[in-house]
Design a protein around this nucleic acid. Structure first.
Length: 271
DNA sequence: AGATGTCCCTGGAAGC
DNA sequence: TGCTTCCAGGGACATC
């Protein structure tokens, strides 16, 4: 499932190729999570200036207006000069003078939303609550520690909430917590400064590593050019319940937190 | 304001 | 073999 590294890899894989293109037509398939919010016809003739990203949202900046694209949990993009006729799960085809941008999304948790600009209430509703970018200079150990100290919930759930730091999904949250030696159920405000700093470093490291290897944590992930990661991310704990911890050989355990599964090693993550 | 539970959707796996 | 049930996930939203 696309977490931040996959979204960023996707962005980089077609941003340059689509920049400057003029939109010819937007074809919509089955309804996605939210409606587009405008008549698809008004996009014809508009120019794509750039592709940005905020959290897991791709921001398609137009000469007039902006499209917010979310891959949900099963979405992937393809950008090519031409594509086969759309299949059952191809729900968006953005035809441009430089190629077709296609969203393939079997589970339809993805979305494409039009906004006049990023200060439009439509965009703000989606983006305002997002925390800092984990790979930006704003994500400092200090702000992270301060943020955690105000939260009583379990650390794993605070990470997933995305209002402190964005982009850490279910897989990378478990992996970062393992690397920091912190149990997912530990209360955020119970972490010492030293442990919170360790977690901060682990988050950056885990995400950077995934980015470096092309966002390959997703089993069937591919970039917009169809590039698949050659390196499957070797998860330390995610999805490995019952198997031996790669560090100490204790059986990895799974618990449920807020309808999500969390994985940890009881011995490497004692509290 | 923060915490918690619910919902959206469908392919694949597990259970009967 | 063929059915049914369960599960995965991001994140907005409602409710406490």
């Amino acid at each position: 499932m696309p977490e931040l590294p996959e979204v960023e890899v996707t962005r980089r894989s077609f941003a340059d190729a689509i920049a400057g293109a003029t939109i010819l037509q937007l074809r919509l398939g089955k309804p996605l999570r939210w409606p587009l919010g405008c008549d698809a016809g008004i996009l014809t003739g508009r120019q794509v200036l750039s592709i940005g990203r905020r959290g897991k949202y791709l921001l398609i900046q137009l000469d007039q207006g902006c499209l917010l694209l979310h891959l949900g949990m099963s979405g992937s993009l393809r950008f090519a000069p031409s594509l086969d006729p759309p299949g059952v799960h191809d729900h968006i085809d953005l035809h441009t003078t430089q190629g077709v941008l296609r969203l393939h999304d079997p589970r339809r948790f993805g979305a494409l939303v039009y906004a006049n600009d990023l200060s439009d209430p439509v965009a703000r509703r989606l983006l305002d609550r997002l925390g800092v970018e984990p790979m930006s200079p704003d994500f400092t150990p200090d702000m992270f520690c301060k943020g955690l100290s105000k939260r009583h919930a379990a650390i794993k759930q605070v990470l997933l909430a995305g209002d402190l730091v964005v982009g850490v999904g279910n897989i990378y949250a478990s992996e970062a917590l393992f690397q920091a030696g912190i149990r997912p159920s530990a209360r955020a405000d119970s972490l010492s400064r030293a442990r919170a700093r360790r977690l901060h470093a682990a988050i950056v490291q885990v995400l950077q590593r995934a980015l470096d290897i092309g966002g390959s944590s997703l089993r069937d992930f591919s970039s917009a050019t169809g590039q698949t990661g050659h390196f499957q991310l070797e998860t330390a704990v995610y999805g490995r319940q019952g198997q031996a911890c790669r560090v100490c050989a204790s059986p990895v355990r799974m618990i449920r937190q807020g309808q999500r599964s969390s994985f940890f090693c009881p011995s490497c993550q004692p509290r």
